[in-house]
């Protein structure tokens, strides 16, 4: 049995990753590792970069076609898509955030990993409001593949 089946936490080996070069331009990382009947991400991509064999198959991102726009982030019912861009020392992670209060641009937040643990400080670069708000945070590149959630202080 895989750890994610028991604990709900994915390991890095469970996820399909881009190359270092692809990561430099910023691409969608889809942490959808279990076959469920769902495909809105395929329809949402303006660049046809996401494909699925059938509705129950796992989505595959063509990292060459993907431009990291993040349109798929807000349609994903599982909130399982993140756009990660890592270049040099810094990285940005775009993540879905359905809680209040929404952070403000420039605000410092705690970056959280897949187990809910605080891993580092991050700065909010952008907040895109929509059906599901998408928050872009900047943090040290070493945490790019770990930070998947944020903790926002109520009053800043």
């Amino acid at each position: 049995m895989k750890r994610w089946e028991r604990e709900g936490v994915a390991e890095i080996e469970d996820i399909r990753l881009p190359t270092k070069e692809q990561l430099q331009k910023g691409v969608a990382i889809i942490e959808c590792i279990q076959e469920i009947p769902c495909n809105p991400c395929v329809d949402a991509c303006p660049f046809n970069a996401i494909s699925m064999e059938n509705i129950n198959a796992l989505p595959i991102v063509d990292f060459e076609k993907c431009v990291g726009c993040g349109k798929c982030i807000e349609v994903c019912p599982g909130l399982a898509i993140f756009v990660v861009k890592a270049k040099g020392e810094k990285a940005t992670v775009m993540l879905p955030y359905e809680f209040i209060p929404l952070p403000k641009e420039g605000q410092m937040v705690k970056a959280i990993n897949r187990e809910g643990k605080e891993i580092c400080e991050a700065v909010v670069k952008k907040v895109r409001k929509g059906k599901t708000p998408v928050v872009t945070i900047e943090l040290p590149a070493e945490y790019a593949m770990e930070a998947r959630h944020i903790k926002v202080k109520a009053e800043e």
Binding site: E7, G8, V9, E31, G78, I112, R114, E115, G116, H149
Partner: peptide, 21 residues
């Protein structure tokens, strides 16, 4: 049960928020 019964993505969402299963 020994395994989480629902979708992994739903479990992942709440694990990120620090809720143990």
């Amino acid at each position: 049960m020994p395994k989480i019964g629902g979708y992994f993505v739903h479990a992942a969402k709440i694990r990120r928020c620090g809720i143990p299963i």
